[in-house]
Design a protein around this nucleic acid. Structure first.
Lengths: 333, 333
DNA sequence: TTGCAAATTGAAAACGTTTTCATTAAGATG
DNA sequence: CATCTTAATGAAAACGTTTTCAATTTGCAA
C-alpha cells in the first residue's frame, strides 16, 4: 500500500555505479564523466528518484531550513516582513518554519528550542522584548540569529531596522511645527525596548527641540490592537491632546475611527501620524499619514544577512539600518 | 569552536545504559524501571542533551512538520487561516513550513515537491485553482493533503470550507430584497472554481429566485487587490449597478473607497456586501457588511483534520463545511 | 526452592544520505 | 611505451536516532 520509496541505492544499482557517484550527480559535483552523468540522470528520471532531505540533512548537517518567530502572522506589519523573508529564503533555496509567539516569552523560548532541535540552519526573530532568557538562548544556539524589525538594546544580536529615534523625532517635530501644542504619544507596552528606548526618546527629543516640557499624562501605553485604539478617544480628549503619534497602524486606525466616530474632525481638530505604513493606512478615511518603512525590505535584508551568516560569508555590518521616510496623507494638515 | 553536540550515545555511556534505554526515557516509553529513568534523566539534564530531530526523523519516518502553501501571507484572509493552522499544529506538536505561492501554478508544484522532499508528514494547501498538475502531485504524495478555504470541484481532496453557494445566494438575495435592481458581481479570476463554480452560482440562484435575468455586463472579473477595486468605480457606474457583491475584503475596501471618494453615497446610493469578514471590514467607513466566515476555525479544523489523516484516525467527513453568517454593518441599508 | 511469565534491558540493524580516502582509469609527457 | 599526473570512481564510515528481537532480570506462585 505504502508507496515504495526509491533510494539512492536503487539508482546506483540500476545505473551500475556507486552511491557516491549518484550523490555527485545529484549535487552537481563536476567530478563526474559526462557519460556516467547522463546514464545516472536517465535512471533517476526513469525511477523518479527524489532525494530524501532528512537523510541529507543528517549526513550533511545542513537542513536548508530556517526558523522564523513572529508575534502574529495576522498582523500586517509582521506579515509584510515575513513575505520579504520568505521570498529571499526561497531565492537562496531555504524554507521557512514559521511559528507564532504572541510575544509571549515562554512560548518564544520553547519555540526556539524546538527549532534548534529541528536543526534549522538559522533563525529570524521578530518581537520586541529581548529578555535575558532569550538572549541566552540566542547565544547557545549554533544557528545564527537575526532580528527583523525588532531591537535588542544591547546591540549584540544582528538586526535590521530603521532609525526609530530619528523617525519619531521627525514625525513629532512636524506635528509641532504645524502648531500642535499637545502631542500624545500612543504606543504598545513600554517594556518593549522599541517603545521605551527608541520611540519615546525620539518623542522627547522633538519636544526638547521645540522647548516643550515632557508631560507624562500625554503618554498612552496600551496594547497593539484596533479596539485598544478605538477606546482611547475619551482619554485623549481628557488629556487635552490635539494630535498623536501612534506606534502601530492597526492601533492608529482604532484611534482615528474612535475620534471620528465621536465627531472629532481629523485632521483639523486632531492630527494623527502612525508608524508602519502598512496598507491599512490607505484603507482608512482620512488616510493615515505615516512614517514609512521598507517593510518587505526589512524582512528581505534580514534574510539576506542570515544567509551570509549561515554560509560564513563576509558581513560588513551586523546591525543594518534602512532608510525611513515620512508620508503625508490625510490625517495631518 | 563549534559547540560540541552531545548525542544519545554520550548519555548512554554516562548513565551506563544502552542507547535504547535512553531513547525510551526520552520518548516516555513506560517500559523503563523508575530508578533507571531517574538516572538517565539526571544525566540528560547534566549534559544538557537535546535530541536531534533530523536523526529522529530519519529513523522514525516522521518529521512532525507539515507544509503549508499559502497564496500570500500578507493577505489577511489567508493569514487568519494560517494562524488557526499554526495554533492547532502547535497543540499537536507539529511545526509548519510556510511557503508563499502567489497562486502561481509553477511555484505551487515546485514548492509541493520540496515539501515532499523534506518529508513533511502532511500538507495544507490554500489557493483556489486546483489544476490537474496539482491534483496529480497530491495523489502521488504519501503525505495527506487538506485544502483550507479552498475548493477542489472534483471533491477528491479533503477540505474545509463554508457553503459558498448558499452564502452568496443569501447575501445577494438580501440586496435584492432591499430594493436593489442591478447587483454587480465583483470577484477575482474566474478560472478559480470558488468564483466560477460557487459564488457565481449563488449569485445566479439569487437572481433567478427574484425573477431577474442574469446580465453578463454586471460581472466584474478582476484581481484581488485594493487598487483593482478602487479603479472599478467608473465601470460600476457605467453598468448602472446600484449595489455589489464582492468576493474579497481588500477588493471590497477598494470598491468602497473608490465610490465614496467619487462622491457616491454608500449605502444610500450604492450598497456593498463583501465575503470574508476579516478585520478590514471594521476599519473602513462605512464599515463593510459581510458574509461571515469562521476564518480562524477554517484553518484550525483543517489542521485538526490533517492530524487525523496523518495518524490514520477515523475521519467521518472528508469535506467539512463550516457555518457562515451574514453581518450587517454600514455598507448596506 | 523452582519455574514461569512479565518486566527490563541491550545489541545491532535500520533510516537514506554525504564525505573521506584509497583505488583505478585515462591522458599527457618524454 | 614507460612514467607520471590528474580525473573518475567506489567502499565504507559517518550522521544520531528508532526499533526489533533476543537476552536477562525480576517478581510471584507453587
Amino acid at each position: 500500500m505504502d508507496k515504495q520509496t526509491v533510494t539512492i541505492y536503487d539508482v546506483a544499482r540500476e545505473a551500475a555505479v556507486s552511491m557516491a557517484t549518484v550523490s555527485r550527480v545529484v549535487n552537481g559535483n563536476p567530478n563526474v564523466k559526462p557519460a556516467t552523468r547522463k546514464k545516472v540522470l536517465e535512471v533517476i528520471d526513469r525511477l523518479d528518484y527524489r532525494p530524501n532531505a532528512v537523510a541529507r540533512g543528517l549526513a550533511s548537517k545542513k537542513t536548508t531550513t530556517v526558523g522564523v518567530i513572529i508575534p502574529d502572522v495576522t498582523n500586517v506589519y509582521f506579515s509584510s516582513l515575513a513575505r520579504g523573508i520568505d521570498d529571499i529564503a526561497m531565492m537562496y533555496k531555504y524554507n521557512i518554519i514559521l511559528a507564532n509567539s504572541d510575544e509571549n516569552g515562554r512560548k518564544e523560548v520553547q519555540v526556539l528550542n524546538t527549532l534548534m532541535a529541528k536543526q534549522v540552519d538559522g533563525i529570524i526573530f521578530m518581537g520586541n522584548e529581548i529578555t535575558d532568557d532569550l538572549r541566552k538562548e540566542f547565544e547557545r544556539s549554533k544557528a545564527p540569529v537575526v532580528l527583523a524589525g525588532s531591537v535588542d538594546d544591547t546591540g549584540k544580536t544582528p538586526s535590521v531596522n530603521i532609525d526609530y529615534v530619528a523617525a519619531v523625532k521627525e514625525a513629532v517635530k512636524n506635528l509641532i511645527d504645524r502648531g500642535s501644542k499637545r502631542v500624545a504619544f500612543v504606543s504598545g507596552p513600554m517594556d518593549q525596548a522599541i517603545n521605551s528606548q527608541y520611540r519615546l526618546k525620539g518623542y522627547k527629543q522633538a519636544l526638547a527641540g521645540a522647548g516643550i516640557d515632557f508631560d507624562e499624562s500625554l503618554v498612552f501605553e496600551t496594547d497593539y490592537s484596533y479596539q485598544a485604539g478605538q477606546s482611547l478617544e475619551p482619554a485623549l480628549l481628557a488629556a487635552n491632546a490635539d494630535s498623536a503619534f501612534v506606534g502601530d497602524d492597526e492601533l492608529a486606525a482604532g484611534v482615528l475611527n474612535g475620534l471620528t466616530d465621536a465627531g472629532i474632525d481629523v485632521p483639523n481638530k486632531f492630527e494623527i501620524v502612525t508608524s508602519n505604513d502598512t496598507k491599512l493606512t490607505e484603507l482608512v478615511r482620512p488616510k493615515l499619514s505615516s512614517i514609512t518603512q521598507p517593510l518587505y525590505d526589512i524582512g528581505a535584508v534580514a534574510m539576506r544577512l542570515l544567509t551570509k551568516l549561515m554560509e560564513n560569508d563576509e558581513v560588513e555590518e551586523n546591525n543594518v539600518v534602512l532608510p525611513y521616510g515620512l508620508m503625508k496623507r490625510q490625517s495631518t494638515k
